[in-house]
């Protein structure tokens, strides 16, 4: 295997696994749309960072977080989905306007939007690994509090926790994963890699631990499989990866023993598991 392919394999495996883990919290808290807003808003951050020559991850993360704050501030005034939609289109348009001011922008643009995993550098791998480590440690250490907050934020507030700080922490973690996923699958497609494995896993079990394991397997599997398809069929890797993740979700929708369409069509096959 050539070295750029080795780097690509490592990158998609790490990003797939990380997205699977954090995706479980996104699904539990129903943050999919919010995550999408953050991915769209990360885009101008990455563009801005590229224009002024700053670190791409840092630029994306900072602007993504600003957007997270903007949405939660706006949500107090107006319905959350509308607020998210406004912020989403504003962020995206800002990125495009900034980029269009540069000559010959289309090539860079598509790399930010849908990823370009075959050009991943060793420095990208190190960054991905470091962010993954931090995110996983935090998720593991605060697991019970994060689940409590997702289930019953009112009860948690009554128990004396600072729920707002915890919610913000979740958003920061999600944003970190979005930024990490940019080289592999780009800003737009990262939502699928975060949401699809976890949503698929959720259909197979009612236990959070098992959900997480299945989500990681699907995430890593989609990453590696997508990379393989991409090199065999000469199509964009980011698209192939997210398509596989979405395929896992659709298959789960059809086949899962509890919620699957098949189980509902054939009630006799619905054995107690």
């Amino acid at each position: 295997m050539s070295s750029y392919l080795v780097r690509a394999v490592l990158e998609v495996a790490m990003v797939g696994g990380l997205a699977g883990v954090v995706g479980v919290h996104v699904v539990l808290r129903r943050l999919s749309f919010f995550t999408m807003a953050m991915t769209h808003a990360t885009f101008p951050g990455v563009v801005l960072a590229a224009l002024i020559g700053a670190n791409l991850y840092l630029g994306g993360a900072v602007v993504g977080l600003l957007v997270a704050f903007a949405v939660s501030a706006l949500s107090r005034r107006q319905d959350t989905t509308a607020a998210t939609g406004v912020v989403l289109s504003a962020g995206f348009a800002l990125g495009v306007a900034l980029l269009s001011a540069q000559a010959g922008f289309t090539k860079d643009l598509s790399a930010y939007l849908v990823g370009s995993v075959l050009t991943v550098q060793v420095s990208d791998l190190v960054t991905t690994g470091a962010i993954a480590l931090v995110v996983l440690v935090v998720l593991f250490a605060l697991h019970k509090e994060l689940v409590f907050g997702a289930f019953d934020s009112g009860g948690m507030r009554a128990a004396g926790y600072r729920v707002g700080a915890l919610d913000l922490l979740v958003l920061v973690l999600v944003e970190a994963v979005v930024v990490t996923a940019v080289p592999a699958v780009g800003t737009i497609l990262s939502v699928a890699l975060i949401v699809a494995p976890a949503a698929a896993a959720r259909l197979w079990t009612d236990r959070i631990g098992v959900t997480t394991v299945i989500a990681v397997v699907i995430g890593v599997g989609s990453g590696l499989g997508g990379l393989l398809i991409s090199s065999e069929a000469n199509v964009a890797a980011g698209g192939a990866i997210t398509l596989l993740a979405a395929l896992a979700f659709v298959v789960s929708l059809l086949l899962s023993p509890r919620y699957g369409a098949l189980a509902r069509l054939l009630p006799s096959a619905r054995v107690s598991l």
Partner: peptide, 20 residues
Amino acid sequence: FPISAAGVVLMGRYRSVGWL
């Protein structure tokens, strides 16, 4: 939400168990 009845009750212990 994927949580058992016992899991919900156990949340009552979280405050005295503490962080981490």
